[in-house]
């Protein structure tokens, strides 16, 4: 008797084909930056997917503020569950009720982090360090301090950010380096006036900061992110990244917030996952950042740049976000004009 195997075979194929769909019924949508930042997010997201047997999808944001604009646009019916952003931007998002509050009782895994990094609406996960970078083959001298940016030998060789770069941190750094702060910005403004004659161009993104110095347009990028330049450093490199001694160190903190109340339980698990040393180390190995979990080590490439914790300045971004439009006007009139 001839047996027909075709029907069972088709059924088996359909069932096997559907198995992953049933097994990974839950989906987490993560919004992150592109490039190396996406690779870092995938390092954490993929291990999360494996651990909890869920599907993780990635959506890219062109920059931090556009990412927040996207959350704002879909506020009525969010599709993004997890937003990678910076602490200042998530502070802004929280003030607009775009984030789901973090339920600490339901997330014991967050106790892995020092509690100053766990906020009501988001969690700070990695520190990104700022400093200036210069080309040894183009700068006429060795730069070691912020005041060196005002040296006349750098006339026409300096690129600096716009006021809005990194949520206004350039202005805050200028103030901190000269004895001021976000509550006393004037010393920073005076410093910016001193360096103005040296400025050739302004950049508005960190990607541009790398390109202007790589192309040799400027000898010095006056304010940049270590993570962007770490891959260019090392022995024999023409680039030198400097976090000047003496003044407080300003950081940007990669932070993670939950944007979709309908998927809050799974999102909270992701927050717990990224707080663990393994996930932190995996992310920072790609990004070249400093984990906030003390049990996780930063990658070798940036170990020399790890500042003492007491030097890291905790800026008040609720104040900065309020004052930035006014400072931006001043900057455009006084600095970003010939």
């Amino acid at each position: 008797m001839r047996t027909n195997y075709s029907i069972p075979a088709v059924l088996a194929t359909i069932v096997i084909g559907m198995m992953p769909a049933f097994a990974a019924a839950e989906t987490l949508v993560i919004q992150t930056w592109s490039g190396v930042w996406e690779t870092g997010a995938r390092a954490v997201g993929d291990s999360f997917a494996k651990k909890y047997n869920v599907e993780v999808k990635y959506e890219l944001q062109q920059n931090t503020r556009l990412g927040i604009a996207k959350l704002r646009a879909q506020a009525a019916s969010p599709t993004i569950d997890i937003a990678f952003s910076t602490n200042d931007a998530l502070e802004q998002a929280a003030s607009e009720n775009l984030l789901v509050p973090v339920d600490l009782k339901a997330a014991p895994g967050l106790s892995a982090l020092p509690q100053k990094f766990v906020h009501k609406n988001y969690v700070e996960v990695m520190n990104i360090l700022f400093g200036f970078v210069y080309r040894k083959d183009m700068a006429a001298f060795e730069l070691t301090k912020w005041e060196d940016l005002a040296d006349p030998r750098l006339k026409g060789k300096l690129g600096v950010p716009t006021a809005q770069f990194a949520g206004g941190r350039w202005l805050i750094m200028a103030a901190l380096a000269n004895g001021g702060s976000e509550n006393n910005i004037e010393p920073g403004f005076a410093f910016l006036k001193r360096i103005k004659p040296n400025v050739l161009s302004f950049y508005s993104t960190d990607g541009e900061s790398v390109k202007v110095i790589q192309s040799g347009e400027v000898a010095v990028a006056g304010f940049g992110i270590l993570s962007d330049f770490a891959k260019l450093l090392g022995s024999g490199s023409p680039y030198r990244f400097v976090i000047p001694d003496g003044s407080p160190v300003l950081t940007s903190v990669v932070s993670v917030g939950m944007a979709n109340p309908r998927n809050a339980a799974l999102s909270l698990k992701f927050l717990e996952h990224i707080a663990q040393p393994e996930a932190q180390a995996a992310y920072c190995a790609v990004i070249n950042c400093t984990p906030v979990n003390p049990k996780a080590s930063p990658p070798d490439a940036i170990k020399d740049f790890r500042p003492a914790p007491e030097r890291i300045y905790a800026a008040d971004f609720s104040t900065i976000n309020k004052k930035l439009p006014e400072w931006d006007e001043w900057y455009k009139k006084e600095i970003q004009a010939r």
Binding site: T162, S201, F202
Partner: peptide, 24 residues
């Protein structure tokens, strides 16, 4: 934005900055 080096921002840059960076 890229060829003006921050010195030649046109009206589109103004609108972008106000809408996206300042939520205004």
């Amino acid at each position: 934005l890229l060829l003006g080096g921050g010195f030649v921002d046109l009206i589109s840059v103004f609108s972008y900055e106000q809408a996206i960076n300042f939520s205004n």
